[in-house]
Design a protein around this nucleic acid. Structure first.
Lengths: 138, 138
DNA sequence: TGTAATGTCTCTAGTGACTAGAGGTTCAAG
DNA sequence: CTTGAACCTCTAGTCACTAGAGACATTACA
């Protein structure tokens, strides 16, 4: 049995975040000491590790809720879990694509100005003011 | 002179967002009709286009504030503007890097499960539960 | 056993960048 | 002059936390 601080250290999830997950229903309410402090067991640790890992991979709290639901029903089909993972993947890919366009644009804008001139003539500011100077859509 | 709705249509920025930008100090308070409705001129339109473009490129409201500050002082050095653009660029690159790691991981996890089995044996769920199954750090 | 330091409790409010909705007023077209 | 769309302000909600206040519990050490 460990305290919330101990759990925090072992999972790298901050204490208030653990309490937040509990409030959101991702973690079931743990046992308490006589003095009302939370005490966790191994199952609690594993559950939190699962959540942490999924969050690190960018899954939303809602998606994680669904995944946990599934874990609780080992006999059910795991199609839903696969769907969630696949849709998460395509979201990540979409974000990458978008960021690459931004990167290109920012490189172009940054290169245009040495930072030595007066802001009146700054290419960075001009580029932002006038979309027509942009090389691609975004 | 155009109304807030007209401005919204021309810039593709939603009406409540325009009001929000005004509240945040990005847009100066426009003239009003006798009936208290906002009326914008060309300067207002250009200012909002600038903000929109910068937001699309991922600049924060705060960064945009600074850029607008600079625009208001054409005689000042534009080093600050360049700095902001460069740091934005490196942030974008960092995000891309991270997302690419996640992408790789999600591909691996998704491939591991056809979605046909029972959730008990699902590789997606197993991967999330056990970080050791991961191929890389994240 | 006493005490001090650290940890934990609940609760409220703040973050960023909006978005939604209520309830009321003004404008432009016909 | 009427109707309906657009506009006004204000409050509250979103997501996933984070920060802080003020009170209570636990632990380490003397």
């Amino acid at each position: 049995m460990f305290s919330i601080g101990e759990l925090s250290r072992r999972t790298n999830v901050k204490v208030p975040t653990i309490r937040y997950y509990e409030e959101m229903g991702l973690l079931s309410e743990p046992e308490r000491t006589e003095g009302n402090q939370r005490r966790y067991d191994l199952a609690g640790l594993e559950r939190l590790s699962f959540i942490k890992h999924a969050r690190d991979l960018g899954f939303s709290i809602e998606a994680i809720s669904e995944l946990i639901e599934l874990q609780g029903h080992p006999d059910r089909s795991c199609q839903a879990a696969t769907d969630i993972a696949v849709s998460q993947l395509s979201e990540v890919r979409a974000r990458i694509k978008r960021l690459r366009a931004l990167e290109k644009e920012l490189v172009r804008i940054s290169k245009g100005c040495s930072g030595e001139g007066r802001s009146e003539d700054c290419y960075v500011l001009a580029s932002l003011a006038d979309h027509k100077l942009c090389s691609n859509e975004h």
